[in-house]
Amino acid sequence: MIGTKKSKARSATRHALLQAASQVVLDKSVEALTLDAVAQQAGVSKGGLLYHFPNKDALIAGLIEQLVLDFETILQEEFDRDADPGTPGQWVRAYVRATLRSHQQSLALVASLSTVVATNPELLQPVQAYEQRWRQKLETSGIDPVRATIIQLAIDGLWFAETFRLGTLDEPLRTQVVDALLAMAQEHD
């Protein structure tokens, strides 16, 4: 019981530190993300921060991992609330809807962290394992794997455009594109 309480406390502290790091990036910039700034934002000592994240790269990796875990949670929620559970394409439809539910704060954080990841691509290694699992689920969702991949690439492209504010779609075109992707994920061969 005591071990569980300590584990929960560590997890809560780690989460609070990641929230503080997110705030530093969002309020200032990724360049302002220092261990000192995060410790100050979180109201902990630098030693307390170093206990959970031994360096800045570990902190950034933690932020990236948290973004992926948040997406995984949304993905499961969308899978569970699918209007046609157990039908082919359910996982693909969940992926489309989960991608669309990305929070503005998460989008801003991803955009900011992209500069760091560009110079240190090793930080994305944990994401690649998730990406592989998502791809496998897309390809085995019960619809044509090529169609599932096209849907994923299209929704990822829309997400990318909105994240980096590149050629975003106006309404009603955006809704029509999303509806078409969801319809493609509903079609059976």
Results as ranks from 00 to 15, higher is better:
residue 17 L to C: 04
residue 53 F to Y: 10
residue 14 R to F: 08
residue 91 W to D: 07
residue 10 R to V: 11
residue 70 D to R: 12
residue 108 A to Y: 03
residue 142 G to S: 03
residue 49 L to A: 05
residue 112 S to F: 09
residue 148 A to C: 01
residue 166 L to T: 12
residue 46 K to S: 04
residue 123 L to P: 03
residue 122 E to H: 15
residue 9 A to S: 11
residue 118 A to D: 12
residue 52 H to I: 11
residue 103 H to M: 12
residue 58 A to T: 10
residue 132 Q to M: 12
residue 182 L to V: 03
residue 52 H to M: 08
residue 22 S to C: 08
residue 159 W to T: 13
residue 43 G to Q: 03
residue 147 R to V: 15
residue 57 D to Q: 08
residue 99 T to F: 01
residue 15 H to Q: 15
residue 169 L to C: 08
residue 19 Q to H: 13
residue 50 L to G: 01
residue 72 E to I: 15
residue 45 S to G: 12
residue 134 W to Y: 13
residue 75 L to H: 02
residue 82 D to Q: 06
residue 112 S to I: 10
residue 24 V to W: 01
residue 103 H to Q: 13
residue 161 A to N: 13
residue 61 A to G: 14
residue 13 T to W: 05
residue 158 L to V: 11
residue 163 T to V: 07
residue 157 G to L: 09
residue 71 F to L: 00
residue 69 L to E: 13
residue 186 Q to E: 13
residue 127 V to S: 09
residue 69 L to Y: 14
residue 126 P to F: 06
residue 79 F to S: 04
residue 34 T to Y: 05
residue 20 A to Y: 04
residue 30 V to W: 01
residue 86 G to H: 01
residue 123 L to W: 05
residue 5 K to T: 13
residue 55 N to W: 02
residue 114 S to D: 11
residue 175 T to K: 12
residue 146 V to P: 05
residue 150 I to A: 10
residue 176 Q to T: 11
residue 103 H to D: 11
residue 38 V to D: 02
residue 179 D to W: 07
residue 59 L to Q: 05
residue 6 K to S: 14
residue 112 S to K: 05
residue 185 A to R: 05
residue 134 W to S: 01
residue 69 L to A: 10
residue 98 A to P: 04
residue 188 H to R: 14
residue 181 L to M: 07
residue 86 G to I: 08
residue 79 F to T: 07
residue 153 L to H: 12
residue 128 Q to A: 15
residue 90 Q to V: 09
residue 90 Q to R: 10
residue 113 L to C: 08
residue 23 Q to N: 10
residue 88 P to Q: 03
residue 139 E to C: 08
residue 53 F to S: 01
residue 80 D to I: 08
residue 89 G to K: 04
residue 160 F to N: 07
residue 99 T to D: 03
residue 189 D to P: 12
residue 14 R to P: 00
residue 153 L to N: 15
residue 81 R to M: 09
residue 42 A to L: 03
residue 148 A to E: 03
residue 135 R to G: 07
residue 148 A to M: 00
residue 45 S to P: 05
residue 170 D to E: 14
residue 180 A to R: 11
residue 5 K to R: 15
residue 60 I to E: 04
residue 97 R to W: 00
residue 63 L to W: 04
residue 3 G to I: 13
residue 184 M to A: 09
residue 12 A to W: 04
residue 125 Q to K: 15
residue 43 G to I: 07
residue 130 Y to N: 06
residue 114 S to W: 13
residue 116 V to P: 06
residue 107 L to E: 09
residue 111 A to D: 03
residue 136 Q to G: 09
residue 111 A to W: 03
residue 12 A to Y: 08
residue 163 T to G: 02
residue 35 L to D: 10
residue 9 A to Q: 12
residue 1 M to C: 12
residue 28 K to S: 11
residue 163 T to S: 00
residue 45 S to M: 04
residue 111 A to P: 02
residue 65 E to P: 05
residue 18 L to M: 03
residue 96 V to D: 00
residue 84 D to V: 13
residue 171 E to L: 10
residue 53 F to M: 02
residue 97 R to C: 00
residue 154 A to I: 07
residue 48 G to Q: 06
residue 108 A to E: 09
residue 128 Q to P: 08
residue 21 A to C: 06
residue 90 Q to P: 02
residue 116 V to C: 07
residue 145 P to E: 06
residue 67 L to T: 02
residue 178 V to R: 00
residue 163 T to K: 04
residue 8 K to L: 15
residue 180 A to D: 06
